[in-house]
Every structure is written in C-alpha cells, then in structure tokens.
C-alpha cells in the first residue's frame, strides 16, 4: 500500500503544511528540531488530529479529504502509531497489551493471546508476558508498545521518536527489533526522529523539516 498525504494543520504557534508520499515497503524518516510539526503530522495521519486542509489516502482508502468533508475515525484507519512515551496500558499485563488490538477486532482470546505471545517473543519480551505493564522499564514498555502496534497488523506504521525515551543500552536492541519486524516489504513506514543517526540507520529516505515545512534540500 502507498501512503499519499498532504497535511495542513494550523496552530497559533505554527502551521504544518507537509506533502509526503511513501511507497509500499519504503521507510521515510522525518527529521528536525522540536516543534517542527513531525509528531503533529503522524497524529494527523492517524486521525487523532483533524486536518485544516489536505488529503490522506492509504492504498485504495481515502482517510481524510477536507474538500469533500471526509474524515475516517482513528479506530477504522488501520494506522499503527507507536508513541514517543509508549502509552502501554498500565492496568493490563504485557501480554494483554499486545493482544489488545486483536481482541478489540473480535479475535477470540486464546488465538489473540497466542499471537501476542509470538510478538512478545520476537521483541524479546516473552519472559515478561505476565508482568503488569506499569512495572516494565522504559525500554521494555517501548518494546511492548511496538509489539502491540505490529500485532494489530496496521496498513501503515507510524513511529514517533520510538527510541527517544530509552537509555543508551536499550536503544540498539530496539532498533534491531524495528529493523527486523517493522519492515515487511509492503507496509509504508514513517519514522519521526530528531537523531540524524537513527534516521540514516533505518530509513530509505530522509525528509528534513523546519517549522512545519520541508527544509530546503541540501
């Protein structure tokens, strides 16, 4: 699937106006300082923020079209978003977190838990499956969050500074997890980061951003 997005969001402090196309299997990194509008772009694509203008198309589906008054709610967009601060559900176990998306889509519990266990295994968290998510370390929680998003089988993967909250030791491990499991060759991936090194290591293409727009290309 291909992601075609032109996102315009007006805020008092700045206006985000970004046009981005991501091919199936391609990973694009949005790089820029804080306040450049990178996270806002991801949240707009995920439907958490309404557009002031523009259009978001994912494969055959029009998710947003301001001109036509189209806005598909987040839960129907199949846009997986891994948040900067993981947002694992604190009252659920690691396993229940990962199984959440499947359960929400009607997958019976045993099957959902089996798949969740496989995902936890891939991100190296199977030993902690039964642990309350509130008691995981930052790195562990981010790994669970990634597994949780991937388990829901989204059509596009949006990663919002997934390594920012991690300490140096946990970072390479999770980058390896992303590299091995997030890219499946069909899904477009948008990675937001302020670390050029991360961007170069993981992305096929780097888009620098400043103040809501694409920075002048070098």
């Amino acid at each position: 699937m291909r992601l075609d997005a032109r996102v315009v969001v007006r805020r008092p402090a700045f206006t985000l106006d970004l046009e981005l196309t991501v091919q199936p299997g391609e990973t694009v990194a949005l790089v820029g300082p804080n306040g450049a509008g990178k996270s806002t772009f991801l949240q707009a694509v995920a439907g958490l923020i309404g557009l002031d203008d523009g259009k978001v198309v994912l494969g055959p589906h029009v998710l947003d079209d301001v001109a036509d008054g189209v806005h598909v709610p987040t839960e129907l967009r199949r846009c997986g978003l891994v948040f900067q601060h993981h947002r694992v559900f604190p009252h659920l176990s690691a396993l229940e977190n990962v199984a959440f998306g499947l359960r929400a889509q009607g997958v019976p519990r045993p099957e959902a838990h089996e798949q969740a266990r496989q995902w936890l295994d891939r991100v190296g968290m199977l030993p902690h499956a039964g642990r309350s998510a509130a008691r995981l370390s930052g790195g562990q929680a981010q790994a669970v969050a990634l597994a949780r998003t991937l388990a829901a089988e989204p059509d596009v993967l949006l990663l919002d500074e997934p390594f920012a909250a991690l300490d140096e030791a946990a970072r390479p491990l999770l980058q390896e997890v992303v590299r091995r499991h997030a890219f499946d060759g069909e899904r477009p991936v948008v990675l937001v980061t302020h670390e050029p090194a991360d961007a170069r290591a993981l992305a096929d293409r780097v888009v620098p951003m400043v103040a809501g727009r694409v920075a002048a290309t070098t």
């Binding site: 958490l48 839960e75 947002r87 998306g101 929400a104």
Partner: peptide, 15 residues
C-alpha cells in the same frame, strides 16, 4: 492518551 492509543489499535469507543 491511552484512549488514543486504543483507537490506533482499532478499538471502538465502546470497547
């Protein structure tokens, strides 16, 4: 934020 996260996972508002 948790409700938003649930929505990105495909959960309806009721769920």
């Amino acid at each position: 934020q948790y409700e938003q996260a649930a929505a990105t996972l495909g959960a309806t508002r009721w769920y």
